[in-house]
Nucleic acid binder design. Structure first.
Lengths: 231, 231
DNA sequence: TTTACGTATTGATAAATATCAACCCGATAA
DNA sequence: TTATCGGGTTGATATTTATCAATACGTAAA
């Protein structure tokens, strides 16, 4: 259990959203006063696809997976959420509904900030509005390029790309403990779990990675990038 | 050849971007004064992936295809641009580069409006900023759901979806002249042109569509929607 | 009219990928 | 300790989809 005091105010939070740099300290204080902090255990749902958006969410600790629940209960993982990132989704300005589910992968501490207050700043602070446009645009571009990968790359290329994403963007290290099950890696890279197993074995046998089950180490990043770029 | 006078000022343009409703008439007049109008023949490129974004583009006549040029020169078509839609792409607020190419499918008349002027309004007009956020968000959501389709649907489902998109969104009629070649339909629905041919034949044989080559008529929309929803 | 070219079509085949079933293995509950 | 359960792994097989090659067809140029 946490209370609001155990998490620093947005004014001095080192994990705050980059776009908060465009707000004044008094604005940020106002945000802290109206925020709520909650903790989640691994597997717990932070918010659910289809539910109304009342707050923006920011993680101050831990990681969560974001996924769309599609046809036939099949899941498509969008990516992994961590600190400094606005988690709200594109529904905010469209239908006020979440279009994907977010659930904790580790112990997570999350800040909930009322969306009304954030939207208010769009009217009164042009820099903040521009920053938000930039944020959405960047995520949109990332989606585009992942879409392109899925359409044009074969499985080895997609899985190589996923491993590079986990190393570069998520863990910021070429050696990490895999948070995701084979099933989940499949949901992230668009293939069956058995295919994940087989291709990881291929990479392992070729000396590109060392896969000692929860631990992953990238041994030959050059080659992995080559496979990703057009495997 | 057209000059600026042959296309109405944004103030009274019936095909203008919805978000322009948030601007005052004097703002719109300022836009007209700084715009440029150009005509394109089928096949001509309106702007090219990778080139810098100097202007937002709006079509006042005709249709154009938007596509990403991916690996191996393979193309992924994003969709078809027509009137009332901002064509600029998510690069505007990120790296100021176009991330896809737009080329005319028919005779096209296009308005170019300096992006600087539009961005200016983001600072001075909160409603306009919000409208733009909404615009980008909606496109982002559409991309998400197309991505989901590609990942989870099989070819029949994807092609059914594409036909419904062409009928509902592009031509706004269940009967239309197909603007796209089989190759291009394939780029839009993520499959080889031969597969497009075969599946169209299936749909034709099953009485779902009538496909007399450049003409397409949807005969059984219910069934087409069923196939799209999970074919 | 004939030729040439690009797209559409068709069939045969190969490649990519998913599915199914069985088994292994480590952790946890009884 | 034993039973159970949920991943992980593996091999066999079926399905989906692309590729290749040949042909047909319509239009524009010669």
């Amino acid at each position: 259990m946490v209370d609001n005091c155990s998490v620093p105010c947005c004014v001095e939070c080192e994990h705050r959203w980059e776009n908060f740099n465009n707000l004044q300290d008094e604005d940020l204080k106002k945000l802290c006063e109206h925020r709520h902090v909650a903790e989640f255990q691994p597997g717990e749902i932070i918010f659910k696809q289809g539910s109304p958006i009342s707050s923006a969410v920011f993680l101050t600790k831990g990681m969560a997976k974001m996924y769309i629940e599609g046809f036939d209960n099949k899941r498509m993982m969008i990516g992994i959420a961590k600190q400094s990132r606005l988690i709200a989704g594109p529904g905010t300005f469209v239908d006020n509904r979440h279009h994907y589910t977010v659930s904790a992968l580790t112990d997570v501490t999350a800040c909930f900030i009322k969306m009304d207050i954030l939207k208010e700043f769009v009217y009164t602070n042009g820099k903040f509005a521009e920053g938000w446009l930039k944020d959405i645009s960047m995520k949109s571009l990332q989606t585009f390029y992942r879409f392109l990968s899925h359409t044009q790359k074969k499985m080895h290329g997609r899985l190589a790309e996923t491993l590079l994403y986990l190393a570069n963007e998520v863990h910021e290290s070429d050696e990490f403990v895999m948070l995701l099950s084979r099933q989940e890696i499949g949901e992230l890279s668009g293939m069956a779990k058995e295919s994940v197993v087989r291709i990881l074995k291929d990479f392992n046998d070729d000396g590109i990675i060392k896969d000692k089950c929860p631990h992953i180490k990238i041994l030959n990043k050059e080659k992995l990038m080559m496979i990703s770029n057009m495997g």
